[in-house]
């Protein structure tokens, strides 16, 4: 929270949250990340519907399913529910410098 925002003394009595939570990335909570096997995926969009985060999106214009790792908490529901078992939960590859 930046210092420019109003504190609890200044905000209106009803307390209006001014920002959308889309700005709050929850993606760094995860340990395992879902990796999709594009050959097995039938694009049934079940993962999109079962995701509690809304972190998986169906993009018909691109004809693909997008995983938004900025929000994915790594719960693994998508991997568990995928009818073709196209999603596996894997530890992310360590990046350089780690």
């Amino acid at each position: 929270m930046s210092s420019k925002e109003k504190g609890w003394r200044e905000i209106s009595i009803a307390g209006v949250s001014p920002k959308s939570s889309v700005g709050f990335m929850t993606g760094d909570w995860k340990t395992y990340m879902p990796i999709r096997d594009l050959e097995k995926c039938t694009k049934c969009v079940m993962c999109v519907l079962y995701c509690p985060e809304g972190a998986i999106r169906w993009r018909p214009d691109l004809g693909k399913i997008e995983f938004d790792y900025n929000f994915c908490k790594g719960c693994g529901i998508c991997a568990n529910e995928c009818p073709t078992k196209a999603i596996t939960m894997k530890l992310p590859e360590p990046t350089e410098g780690e």
Partner: peptide, 14 residues
């Protein structure tokens, strides 16, 4: 919207 702070695998959030 995404970015809510429910636990991973939250049923109610879905």
């Amino acid at each position: 919207l995404p970015g809510h702070r429910a636990c991973a695998g939250c049923g109610p959030a879905n």
